[in-house]
Design a protein around this nucleic acid. Structure first.
Lengths: 150, 150
DNA sequence: GTAAATCCTACCACTCAGGTAGGAATATGT
DNA sequence: ACATATTCCTACCTGAGTGGTAGGATTTAC
């Protein structure tokens, strides 16, 4: 599994905040209730999103979180990258400037690099806005059997 | 990480067998030596490939393995699928006909399904032959900065 | 001043990746 | 017949990471 529960929940939280924007701050308790997820666990996830500058937060009564930008200005790629650390499909791809010692002669490396590129390209092209408006054509593309008839 | 060492080594072994085809059976000791990998560990991996019908094997002296088909007739997707079990980027995608209970209302599911489709499409289009001939244009596509000048 | 909320630190059970170890079965060449 | 080279099979082990839980300190609104 390339994207763990952490990344999936992070996206769910961001989508929930996007859907419920414009009404001041949204409490984590409300999000957990709506999405039917453990609030305690979401706490640790939203902390990462907050420290990463994706949210604004307010402590105390009537406090909570809200998006720092408009939904269309968040790509799925950056949200997942922040919470997952990396989205590389294999651990032999160059990270932080360090590459595998066999890189120069490895015949399979171009495959992994190409796969990494395909994934990043897909995730960078989809925004939070696409998620909450249910842009199936953009998300599912050729694999969507409903997109043609709609 | 979506593809573990097992899947990567499996592909490496298949590529090694493809490169050294036509000379009867190739022993695992030779493969491990050439690829600089633990023979004992490769043993468990090649066993899966063999049982999956991808190889022919011969026990005893001068025994070893060879490809059951031509390199161009193996897609990377089927090799990885066999050794990894699944290539789904998240564990909330339908597997074995069972889908997540929130599937009907989940706004992020189309994203994961789309990502899964993009990955499968890429990996199904690349064969073992592409790997051993170093078809960079096919593997790296738009992400290849050398492909244009070559 | 109290209730509601974020923030922070620590802990924990379970699974899986990435191997290692040792030997049994089988085929070849002499 | 026998030694050797090989696949095949079962069992085990260690460390890291996933997916949480627990408890309290701090801050803010009413």
């Amino acid at each position: 599994m390339m994207v763990s529960t952490t990344g999936r929940y992070a996206l769910t939280v961001m989508a929930d905040l996007a859907r419920n924007a414009g009404e001041g701050f949204v409490s984590l308790a409300d999000i957990a209730e709506r999405e039917q997820l453990s609030m305690k666990y979401l706490e640790s996830i939203i902390s990462v999103l907050n420290k990463g500058g994706m949210l604004e937060s307010l402590r105390g009564k009537n406090g909570g979180y809200k998006l720092a930008r408009k939904p269309a200005e968040y790509t799925v790629n950056e949200i997942l990258l922040l919470t997952e650390g990396t989205l590389a499909p294999v651990n032999c791809i160059m990270q932080d400037g360090v590459e595998c010692e066999k890189a120069a002669t490895c015949s399979t490396l171009p495959l992994w690099a190409g796969l990494d590129g395909v994934i990043e390209n897909y995730l960078s092209n989809i925004t939070l806005e696409d998620i909450i408006t249910g842009n199936r054509k953009k998300m599912l593309g050729d694999y969507c059997n409903k997109c043609e008839t709609e």
